[in-house]
Structures are given as C-alpha cells and as structure tokens.
Simulated assay, not measured.
Amino acid sequence: MSERKSILLRLDPAVHNALAKWAADELRSTNAQIEYLLRQGLTQAGRLPRDLGGLPRRGRPPKGADSPSATDTDQEGQAGGA
C-alpha cells in the first residue's frame, strides 16, 4: 500500500461540527468520515479510480482472529474488557 497523503483542509466550524457528530454516530473519526464521503462522491460521479484500494481497516480485529491476545482473552472469559 502506498503512503497516504496529508492535506490541510479549512472548514466552516459549523460544517466541521456537523461532520464530527456524523462521524461519532457512525463510530468513525472525523478524518475517516471525510474520506468515506469523498470516496462516495467520487463513486457517484464515476471518477473513483478502478485500481484504488479499500479503506484501511481500523480498530480491533474481528473476534476469532489469529491474534494471540484475542485467543488468550477469549479463553479467560474476559472478552470485551478494558
């Protein structure tokens, strides 16, 4: 995967607040919400590159993943803790 680009984006505070609330409602960061909306707009306009990779997966791996910590936690019955 290639390195991700960083940009400076100036937004009206009311727009930023609305985006931040929407992102929180969907359990995303504001940055991830902006990228999601940009990809959605590019798709609708028929301008999304075909060779584009998917959105990076964030957060915890799904239950049952081959992670030693996930297996240890499941066996101890403490899943969903801290």
Rank of each mutant, 00 (worst) to 15 (best):
E35S: 07
R39F: 00
L9R: 00
A24R: 13
A65Q: 06
L9W: 00
L11N: 04
Q33L: 06
N17P: 07
L48S: 11
E35F: 03
Y36K: 10
T73F: 00
A79I: 00
L19I: 13
P13F: 09
G80P: 04
A18V: 10
R50S: 15
D74W: 02
Q44D: 15
S2M: 11
V15E: 06
P56H: 02
P49M: 07
R39I: 01
G64V: 00
T43C: 10
R60G: 09
N31A: 14
K5V: 15
Q40K: 12
P13K: 10
G81N: 12
P56F: 01
E3V: 08
N31S: 13
T30C: 03
R58E: 13
A45L: 15
D66Q: 12
L55E: 11
L55S: 14
D66P: 15
Q44V: 04
L37R: 09
Q44I: 04
R39G: 02
G46I: 02
E3D: 13
G80H: 03
Q44P: 00
N31H: 08
G46H: 05
Q75T: 04
L27E: 13
A20P: 00
Q78A: 12
E3Q: 11
I7N: 03
P62Q: 01
V15Y: 04
T73L: 02
L38S: 00
T30R: 01
Y36T: 08
T71Y: 05
R39S: 04
D74I: 12
R58S: 15
R58C: 05
D72C: 04
G53S: 13
S29I: 02
L52V: 09
S6R: 13
D72W: 05
P56L: 07
T43I: 09
Q75H: 07
D51K: 06
E26R: 10
W22Y: 09
N17L: 12
L19C: 06
Q78H: 12
L19K: 04
A70H: 04
P13V: 01
A23R: 02
Q40L: 14
E26H: 09
L9C: 01
L55G: 10
M1S: 15
S69H: 03
K5S: 14
R28C: 04
L19G: 05
E35G: 06
A18M: 12
L19H: 04
R4W: 14
D74V: 11
P62A: 03
L37D: 05
A32D: 05
G54F: 13
A32Q: 06
L9K: 02
L48A: 14
A70N: 11
L8D: 15
G59D: 02
W22E: 14
P62H: 03
G41C: 11
L27T: 10
R50P: 03
R10E: 06
G41T: 07
A14I: 09
R60P: 07
D74C: 07
H16Q: 13
A79T: 08
S29F: 04
S67F: 09
G54E: 15
P56R: 08
G59S: 05
L52I: 12
P13A: 11
A82D: 13
G41Y: 10
L37Q: 09
P49I: 01
